[in-house]
Simulated scan of single mutants.
Amino acid sequence: MKRRDALVEELRNAGCLSARQLASRLGVSKSTIVRDVAKLREAGVPIRLGRPGYALAGLETVRREIDRALLGRRVLRIEYRGADGTVTAREVEPSICLGGRGGRWYLVAWCRLRDDVRIFRLDRIVSAAVTDERHPEPDQGPLETLAGLTED
């Protein structure tokens, strides 16, 4: 099962990879990748096959919506699955940053539900939709204030 976990992590980190690219990264054949993807899909992992290759279905859409919200300074409506599995609906102002660390992608944004800056793991965002509402520019406080933040 470790190889299949590694396959999912590769898709999480890269976004979209062909069977050939996955095979090269994992040191296996293309046919092994095709079999592993089939087994993962049977187990409920949302892997889709598109023109450029395999991708995790929800993550690509979430990233696209976050990019749209960042570029247009729009409020983003998300459903977020916490560490305990509970899903909450939130409106966030994604004007702080989007980045990766330790093999995962994170969104740092103002959360209206918590009335504070929060860190959201992209793989825990169940759905994301850009609203028509524009949000103001965030205060230009020092970046050191982000050091004490914890994942929501």
Rank of each mutant, 00 (worst) to 15 (best):
G103V: 12
D84P: 05
E137M: 14
D5Q: 10
L59N: 02
G58Q: 10
V34N: 06
S18L: 07
L113Y: 12
R90T: 08
D139P: 13
E151N: 04
E137S: 14
E91F: 14
S95A: 11
R101F: 14
H135Q: 03
L71Q: 13
T86F: 15
D5A: 13
M1A: 05
Q140D: 12
Y80N: 02
V117T: 12
R124E: 00
I47T: 07
G50F: 07
V37I: 05
A19H: 03
T150N: 07
G58S: 12
P46S: 05
W110T: 08
E93P: 04
F120V: 12
S95Q: 12
T86E: 15
L113G: 10
L17N: 00
R81M: 07
A23G: 12
A83W: 11
T150I: 08
A23N: 03
N13T: 10
R124D: 01
D36G: 07
L17H: 03
L113F: 11
G53E: 00
R63I: 06
Y54C: 02
A57F: 01
R101L: 13
D115L: 15
E60Q: 11
T88N: 14
A6V: 02
R118A: 05
I78H: 06
R12C: 02
R3Y: 04
L59G: 01
A129N: 13
K39R: 11
V126F: 04
R35M: 05
G44W: 10
G103N: 10
L70E: 09
R112F: 08
P94W: 03
A69K: 13
R64F: 12
G102C: 07
I33V: 13
G148I: 00
R12G: 00
I96L: 14
L71D: 08
T88Y: 14
P138M: 07
R73V: 06
K2Q: 11
K2W: 09
R48D: 07
L26A: 11
R41Q: 07
V34S: 05
A23E: 00
